[in-house]
Design a protein around this nucleic acid. Sequence first.
DNA 1: GTGAAAGCGCTAACAG
DNA 2: CTGTTAGCGCTTTCAC
Lengths: 348, 348
Amino acid sequence: MSRPATITDVANEAGVSVSTVSRHLRGDRVRAAERIDRVITLLRYRPSPAAQSLKSGKTGAIALVVPDVANPFFAAVVRGAESITSQSGQTIFLANTDESDDRETEVIEDLLSRVDGMILAPASENNPNPQRLADAGVPTVLIDREVPSTGGFDTVLIDNDGGARSAVEHLLAKGHERTATIAGSVESTPGRLRLEGYMVTMAEKGIEPPADFVQRGGFKEHGGYQAMMRLLALPDPPTAVFVANNLMTIGALRAIKDIGVKIPDDLSIIGFDDHPFSEILDPPLTVVDRPMEQQGALAMRMLLSRMNEDVPHRATKRVILDTHLVERASCGPPRNSPMSIGPRARGP
Amino acid sequence: MSRPATITDVANEAGVSVSTVSRHLRGDRVRAAERIDRVITLLRYRPSPAAQSLKSGKTGAIALVVPDVANPFFAAVVRGAESITSQSGQTIFLANTDESDDRETEVIEDLLSRVDGMILAPASENNPNPQRLADAGVPTVLIDREVPSTGGFDTVLIDNDGGARSAVEHLLAKGHERTATIAGSVESTPGRLRLEGYMVTMAEKGIEPPADFVQRGGFKEHGGYQAMMRLLALPDPPTAVFVANNLMTIGALRAIKDIGVKIPDDLSIIGFDDHPFSEILDPPLTVVDRPMEQQGALAMRMLLSRMNEDVPHRATKRVILDTHLVERASCGPPRNSPMSIGPRARGP
DNA sequence: GTGAAAGCGCTAACAG
DNA sequence: CTGTTAGCGCTTTCAC
């Protein structure tokens, strides 16, 4: 518990110079290798990251900045990213922005000079933070969300539009002309694109949903609850709802339970992002799923290769992963529709 | 995007010495204050954390090391801890150990010299990592889990034993002599104590559960699934199960669904740790809950005060937070029991 | 109030 | 292969 040993302590104790110790540490062959190793363990020597990075300009760390660590999607992204770095010897610093641009600014300012690279899921699209990173020369890859105004970032997205489309088409195919949506934060890429996917798909079928059928939920459970409550209170409520993310879906389902609406008889519901509990709900939840860990792993691979680059300005990569529909049992035909005749039908 | 500005650049540009700039930055009154500020923004100057900590020995960062960021409990702990640091100007580095001692060792070795303090939920109780931190002189507070062998840490626990007891007593009160448990990792504090709570409470009622009634689930969803499958495959299965954490409960419920067992008619189930989805399950899940964010906030407060300490060896604090039972509808009387007579009874 | 200068622990020339 | 030495950017005496 005394003062931590420095490289000088090791050198003295081993009877060599600091450069020899340093070389040995970096992998060069040295005569005193064994002796140095012995002294290192004896003294519990650990190189000081501060000194190393002051000298080298490298920190050996990567930041992973996400809006919500508690969201199972981002937890999966973290797992995916970690699975890649475990090879590379880089440390990951995880940070949470709570879906707030301001918090994100703070976090980034703080991490900026402590890391060699950053994976960022920006809280919103019109947000100067990624540009800040670019200005500071920190290699950055954007994940799940992009910032159109300031190009030049490698990005790993999913097909939000296509995912939303497949969800809405699924509902439409069951006969739900009265399909509503609970959108996330439309300032963010997934929020905007999933809403767009809903609107466009509806329009293609010649349906113009009433304004009330588009509710905002802000990506959090509470927002999903409120939004569903508003939908259910409508004089002429929807027969189906597309909820644009996992957390909001939990909230929406709570509202549905509180009101006593029956799924799928009274209301069909489809979520975005799968979750282990989707299967154990009653009825099991139909969702749009996507390769979450893969998204994290890919982003990390892209970042690593970007960081190891000699020429800093290679062309920008933008990859879009596919979603797929996992059909379970939360979507049925609307009540009173011709399609609802059958064992499940209950109406007059 | 050129070389980041240093304090020397600022000093030159402002026409003062570096020490004046440094003093201004640290809050001293300086004549050139305004001019310096202007130059700082002009040059986008940011002090280098590496240089600062090399000089001062402080890093301005705190590590929060948990076994599983994806577990909603730890996500809540993170939120709680962040709510405290946002005042203190410290950065939080979050790290994941995946419930593995070895991974934890790596992570800690890596973070050791990058932070001023650490909040750690050790993967297991017989694990040298906390001792490693103590040896290195890093102020540490343990959360949720302790390491009995090496005392001397401030610790924030919950009443695992009492929580388990209340769960088992709840089941017993409904008439379930045949109560089984799905335990977490018994190498960890909560795993060990919750199992102990189960055993002791059963014993007090004069019940000795068959060996098969104690299943290990390792705190992950998959383990809970497997464990419940084994329980359900028993020639004489339990009528109630106490599952020792949230993730395993999801797995257990999946197994129950797969097999087609009905809750609570065929089987009662009680979980540990509440979750938003507990309410939307059918039937809603009865659980033992605890103040999660508070646990994180408290740990951070204790760490901060420990870090600001002059005398390094104040007496160790150990706080234990209470749990409470949230009764919903997943526990009923056992089938065929006298208590099951009533509207819910279905047996012969 | 201010500036000059030493030095935190390490790496990377540069000489041997 | 090895040792000497000059900083990396910053804080902090120490003198003014």
